[in-house]
């Protein structure tokens, strides 16, 4: 871990402006991912801007009947909020499927969205990794890749996005609110927050330099059976091999997103037209472009079967 200076931000706009102007500045909120990576010198900020005191930790109802979740709402608090439990159950379920109680007590809503991949080659600074060191190559391709991505990947990177929460946010059509260095705000549909790796796997989001997430807004509740099914070898405290977030309406229509298979929460709206036909048809649409490795080919079948189980459960 390199030395760094530290300050506590006084307002979101101030934090954003400083992050844009101070060389090597990074925001720190929960810190559970950033400090982990700083210890391995994968992240080497020269300056940390602590945003914990900005008051972005409230969950408020929006005028159109949705919920506005402050960027600093802890995963535990978001999962436990009775409005979320009643009306956005898929989000609550996804949150409690992730990490551990200790981590959820600290990890924030925005930080969860922005957490970086758990690809073991990314985590080992001795190994080439295009995400960590652009142009150095991807050592995961041809290496140990059981956990890694099957769709949305590229020749440069096959890492997955590790979040559970983000998968639920994606199926809920959440919107990410930000403030930019000049003080302007904008709203980014969750679908557009994360970028596919392509030739630039080190560019992970559409956020600009210094841009700070201030909240995530959930549209008004859509009802339906809301399920999150996370599949893993270990019964708890493990990243997903595959996860399925689904909202299934009584008429059989609905939405589906997958976790553990792609560089971002994976949703293909067109595939949802096949909801009534069942898991096979939906998965065929979701994973039509899958390019698995020998190690992770099983994820394609696992996704289909997990979705089938979720749909069966939704039917009651």
């Amino acid at each position: 871990m390199r030395p760094f200076t530290y300050e506590r931000a006084t307002s979101p706009a101030d934090a954003s402006a400083k992050a844009a102007s101070i060389p090597g500045a990074r925001f720190i909120a929960g810190g559970t991912n950033l400090l982990d990576l700083m210890k391995l010198q994968i992240e080497t900020p020269a300056h940390l801007i602590d945003v914990n005191g900005l008051g972005l930790d409230k969950i408020e109802e929006t005028p159109d009947g949705g919920l506005r979740v402050g960027a600093l709402v802890r995963n535990t608090d978001l999962a436990a909020d009775m409005r979320v439990r009643r009306h956005y159950a898929v989000l609550s379920r996804a949150l409690v499927a992730g990490a551990s109680g200790q981590l959820r007590n600290v990890a924030t809503t925005a930080g969860n969205l922005l957490q970086r991949t758990r690809c073991p080659y990314f985590y080992d600074p001795n190994q080439p990794c295009n995400k960590r060191q652009p142009g150095s190559g991807c050592s995961a391709i041809g290496g140990v890749s059981r956990q890694l991505g099957v769709v949305g990947t590229s020749e440069a990177c096959i890492a997955t996005h590790p979040s559970d929460m983000a998968v639920a946010m994606r199926v809920l059509d959440a919107t990410v609110e930000t403030v930019r260095p000049g003080g302007a705000t904008r709203a980014i549909p969750i679908a557009e927050l994360h970028r596919l790796p392509g030739d630039t796997p080190h560019v992970e989001t559409s956020l600009e330099r210094g841009e700070l997430i201030t909240a995530v807004t959930l549209p008004k509740p859509v009802g339906g059976a809301q399920l999150y099914h996370k599949v893993r070898d270990r019964a708890s405290y493990a990243f997903a091999l595959v996860s399925v977030a689904a909202i299934v309406q009584p008429d059989g229509t609905g939405r589906v997103a997958l976790g553990g298979v792609a560089p971002k929460p994976w949703r293909v709206e067109a595939a949802e037209a096949h909801m009534k036909q069942g898991a096979k048809a939906v998965t065929a649409g979701l994973l039509a472009d899958a390019r698995p490795t020998d190690d992770n080919r099983f994820k394609v079948r696992l996704a289909e079967r997990t979705l089938a189980a979720v749909l069966a459960e939704a039917r009651g």
Partner: peptide, 15 residues
């Protein structure tokens, strides 16, 4: 600091 080029505060620039 090493990233004297001003690194954005999101996760865009790797080290």
């Amino acid at each position: 600091p090493r990233h004297g080029q001003a690194m954005p505060a999101d996760a865009d620039v790797p080290s």
